[in-house]
Amino acid sequence: MTLAGELESHLPAGTSLVFGQLYLTRSDDGTFEACHLDDMGKKDSLSPIDSVIDLRELAKFDAGGEYRPLKTAPSLKGGWITRSSESPEFLKRLDAIYPAVFATWIAYANEEHHPTSLRRTLDRQTGMYRFAGTISDQLANRMMRELCHPGCIRKIAWPIDDMHPVSRLKAQPRAIPVICTEACTFAINAARALAKEAFEKANPPAATGATE
């Protein structure tokens, strides 16, 4: 089935779904509609956005005007609504807000796309990010706790290493899961910073000055 076909079957006419910070509905006549979850009760007052380009621009900044390089940060702006009668067009609009997120869930659910362990992701790095691979499991858990969980709405589907697999994620009723199948650039950067900090703590530079 095509991705647009999957979207149609996930969201039949007359139903609704939660997708991250989005509330998706499909009217009885088949029209797709998306708005911010916080706006589901005030659709009449929302500004319509009818293009992929405008939605991409909307998702680029938070309500305070700060750049959102991570599209699944929990800071999607509200106040808008988008409608389309065509599922391929509606999917493009969802991808403008959450790039590849719907396709990732479908591929994961169909077991065509498999999570990559953190160790495999970090061991692949070169250049300045190679050092990230030295992070301990304990610090990796701290990274997930302090960076991933508050900073991103994705549910982590990857294990730290391939020896300790994690349970497969399941969809909740009336929701499309927003999942993370591999550590992103922010996580790799944080892993590098934590690994460097730990290394420097364990290997303090030799004292060069006179002591008292």
Binding site: L70, D95, P99, A100, A103, T104, T181, C184
Partner: peptide, 16 residues
């Protein structure tokens, strides 16, 4: 993108 989304690692499921 290398530093934005969709990333190089996320893109394949989108392409039919």
């Amino acid at each position: 993108f290398w530093k934005e989304e969709p990333s190089f690692r996320q893109i394949w499921p989108m392409i039919e």
